[in-house]
């Protein structure tokens, strides 16, 4: 067993964020959640706001993200993360508050909370992880599931007749006056990971300036739920999800 390495001559080029715990993540191999969790903590490290941040975890695959994030956190009921975050922020206006939700959580059961939180311009960061499926409950149809996409509750493919259309909730909330910064990213390529990190950084900076709601959608994959290898899932994401949910800024602050 090697107890000590001779590393004096080596240059440290990368380390995990200090605010990311050593607890092994429960996410499935290839899943985007781990990368997104890490990015948030990297930003919190760099901005040195660990002692001023409260995160709100969802019900869904990221329910246990508080095991990995070394910050104070609250686990919200399904769909209610933005209301819980509103409660925290309103009585702690000096704290940084973010909510983290999946597509079923934010765009189905929590639609009302999502719209009204943004409409009030709550000064929080809302992270929306869209992988077009309910991962935790075993791969059921989400509001963002594509037409024709097979899930355990749309085994013959989502049909417009039965299930209506995939919901572009991010475009929808971007029309609300309370939305300050609305942007869509992904984590399937190194450069997209870097862009997402910048968006998270900007959002916390805007929060410091009390600008209003910052909303980041992240198009992510679900290799287990989609029944694909991680690599194949990223290809499928690029070919199918991104055309429906195009990446980039949807609402950017106007320069005065």
């Amino acid at each position: 067993m090697i107890n000590k390495c001779e590393i004096e001559d080596l240059e440290l080029v990368y380390e995990k964020p200090k605010t990311l715990t050593d607890t092994p993540m429960h996410y499935c191999p290839g899943c985007g959640h781990g990368v997104i969790n890490k990015l948030i903590m990297e930003v919190i490290d760099e901005l040195k706001i660990q002692d001023k941040t409260v995160g709100v975890a969802p019900v869904g695959c990221a329910v246990f993200e508080y095991r990995y994030m070394d910050i104070d956190m609250i686990e919200a009921p399904h769909g209610r993360a933005s209301a819980v975050a509103t409660g925290v922020k309103r009585v702690n206006p000096d704290k940084y508050v973010f909510s983290y939700q999946g597509d079923g959580d934010l765009a189905a059961i929590g639609t009302s909370e999502t719209i009204h939180t943004v409409n009030r311009g709550e000064n929080i960061l809302m992270l929306f992880i869209n992988n077009a499926i309910y991962g935790m409950t075993g791969g059921q149809m989400a509001p963002t599931t594509l037409i024709g996409q097979k899930t355990s509750t749309s085994p013959f493919g989502r049909s417009v007749k039965n299930n209506g259309f995939p919901l572009n909730i991010t475009e929808l909330i971007s029309k609300l006056d309370g939305a300050f910064y609305v942007t869509r990213h992904s984590v399937h390529k190194p450069n997209s990971v870097r862009k997402l990190k910048k968006a998270i950084q900007k959002s916390f900076e805007y929060q410091k300036e009390n600008k209003g709601t910052c909303f980041i959608e992240v198009i992510s994959n679900c290799p287990a739920g989609w029944g694909m290898t991680p690599l194949k899932s990223n290809e499928w994401l690029e070919e199918n999800l991104i055309p429906k949910y195009p990446l980039g800024d949807i609402k950017v602050p106007t320069k005065n």
């Binding site: 409260v54 709100v56 609250i74 919200a76 009921p77 209610r80 209301a83 819980v84 975050a85 509103t86 409660g87 925290v88 922020k89 309103r90 009585v91 702690n92 704290k95 009302s112 909370e113 009204h116």
Partner: peptide, 14 residues
Amino acid sequence: EIAAINMVYGAAGS
């Protein structure tokens, strides 16, 4: 009321 009680939850949690 659903949002209200969850705001209470967040604020009480803090």
